[in-house]
Write a protein that binds this DNA or RNA. Structure first.
Length: 285
DNA sequence: ATGGGGGCCTGCCGGC
DNA sequence: TGCCGGCAGGCCCCCA
């Protein structure tokens, strides 16, 4: 799915059409995605104004002026498409919904926001804003990687004694919230850490580098407007281009891009997910 | 508590 | 051309 940078890109794309705007009508074209939608969600949202559009990890939260919050998660293949977003557009685009268009927000402005998700691993939920800290999906999330709560000392302590490979640990949203399969591989390559290194064995200087590079790769990807692989589009339908900047992800058997390194990128499966790394310059811990 | 594997879905791509 | 296996940006759940 969209990882943190892609979700942040989507949030920024939604800002001008959602934040401060009234949802005239929410149309649900099926009973749920990953789980059933809350009963009455469409009616509960129709007529409400979005007061704030936030991101937490890979979730987008839209606070409504009714004391409720809409929660979006893009899963693996979720996309947001925006039509009729021109400021003066007063017409709804009455185009027939496309395949896998599951939720359609018609805004008072005339804009139409469509949640499309082929694999349906995504989520759309609604809850009382006051209960946010008790929401099961959000309650156990770790710190934001770009926030002040993440630093090398904290991560060192958090991973102390853990026997899981660092690759797996970084994918665990309870430890750090927002990283996914691409950016974990990229960050480990930048930090020159082998993905199979046991989490508890990472040395303080390595951890400093790791945190630095986690932040760096996410910042760069956000600045580039997310990655956009095969089936993901930014909200405006344009392809992002950070995908062209991947050093290791999906580059098996290709030369390592590190200056002076003669290694070749390898693919490895950990906890059922692909990891990409350079066996030459990523030190085993 | 922690770690691994299965399952959820559809689509795409490469090999035969 | 078609069919089939493998793979895909995520996360919950169950089991050891």
């Amino acid at each position: 799915m969209p990882e943190l940078p892609e979700v942040e890109t989507i949030r920024r794309g939604l800002l001008p059409v959602m934040a401060g705007h009234v949802i005239t009508r929410l149309t649900l074209r099926r009973a749920g995605l990953r789980w059933p939608f809350p009963s009455g969600m469409a009616d509960a949202v129709s007529g409400a104004r979005v007061t704030l559009l936030r991101r937490r990890a890979k979730y987008i939260l839209a606070d409504l002026d009714r004391g409720t919050t809409l929660l979006f998660h893009m899963g693996m293949s979720g996309r947001i498409l925006i039509d009729g977003a021109a400021p003066d557009a007063r017409h709804h685009t009455n185009t027939t919904p496309a395949k896998h268009d599951h939720a359609i927000f018609d805004m008072e402005s005339g804009a139409r926001i469509t949640f499309n998700d082929a694999r349906r691993f995504g989520m759309l939920d609604l809850f009382e804003t006051a209960t946010e800290s008790n929401q099961p999906l959000l309650a156990s999330l770790g710190p934001e990687p770009l926030g002040n709560d993440l630093n090398a000392d904290w991560l060192l302590a958090r991973l102390s004694g853990r026997r899981s490979p660092i690759k797996t640990a970084l994918l665990d949203q309870r430890i750090i919230a927002g990283l996914g399969n691409i950016y974990v591989s990229e960050a480990l390559w930048r930090a020159e850490i082998h993905p199979e290194t046991l989490s508890g064995n990472i040395q303080p200087t390595q951890m400093e580098r790791l945190v630095l590079h986690i932040r760096g790769v996410l910042d760069e990807a956000i600045a580039a407007g997310g990655s956009s692989l095969k089936d993901y589009r930014q909200t405006d339908g344009e392809l992002g281009y950070f995908q062209h900047a991947f050093a290791v992800y999906d580059r098996p058997n290709q030369p390592c891009l590190r200056n002076g390194c003669t290694g070749e990128i390898e693919r490895l499966v950990q906890a059922g997910r692909s990891s990409f790394f350079c066996p030459n310059c990523q030190a085993r811990g």
